[in-house]
Design a protein around this nucleic acid. Structure first.
Lengths: 130, 130
DNA sequence: AATGATTGCGCAATGG
DNA sequence: ACCATTGCGCAATCAT
């Protein structure tokens, strides 16, 4: 089925038609430009987010390192001096509050067992939410 | 300048032409499908990255909180007991290893001065911008 | 009913 | 010669 235009047209109709077509062609152009822009912006956003993400990952890596350091230092100190520090359960306190775990008591590991406590965390967030 | 096809064509040429057009039309379709897919995937990636980003921001927030807590606790302890802990300069050590500040010396604030160093956290993690 | 916005589709030019 | 990509116009359809 070839196009669909009329079979008989007056000059005015033709004129009208042309005008209409021209306007539509313009609209199509506008629409496509917009579409293209959106696409490009989206792509750009991906790039930005990727970078931002890396920065964040980095920061986390550093903070994790620092936390590890502090906790070990703290634990070391606590043990080094039989502890008059405070009445808190350090091991529990310093376990790992970033990446919380579903509280399994684990008992208070006192000076007897000095397990290195390898990283076997699992969980999510939840800082010292007293 | 209307189309550009020949003026005189043989049946075979016409046939060839048609075949060619058809193949191109198929190619165009394939090409457009691919293009559309890529666009959608990109959009999807943006969503994923946004989510991942939030998770990371959250983790950072928690770690920052915990670090703050540990450092304060540490500092408190250190001062509470004139300190035989170790020979390190705690204040300096605990300053803040994330976000390297080209800070001025600030000297080693020992047990004499006990500046509270109020953290006037202003605002949020200015990043969630789009 | 009229008009701009979108979208599927084919043509031709062009890139690889 | 062939396929892929792209700008462009047409017509149908959507949305106002």
């Amino acid at each position: 089925m070839p196009p669909k235009r009329k079979t008989t047209t007056t000059d005015e109709e033709d004129d009208e038609y042309r005008k209409k077509r021209d306007r539509n062609n313009q609209a199509v152009k506008r629409s496509r430009v917009k579409s293209k822009q959106r696409t490009e912006e989206t792509q750009q956003k991906v790039n930005e987010l990727r970078v931002k993400n890396e920065v964040l990952e980095d920061k986390i890596k550093n903070q994790t390192k620092e936390l590890k350091f502090l906790k070990e230092l703290f634990l070391t100190q606590a043990q080094a001096k039989s502890d008059k520090l405070v009445g808190v359960n350090l091991a529990e306190l310093l376990k790992s509050s970033d990446e919380e775990e579903p509280e399994s008591d684990e008992g208070s590991m006192d000076s007897k067992k000095k397990k290195k406590k390898q990283r076997s965390d699992s969980g999510k967030t939840g800082t010292s939410k007293t």
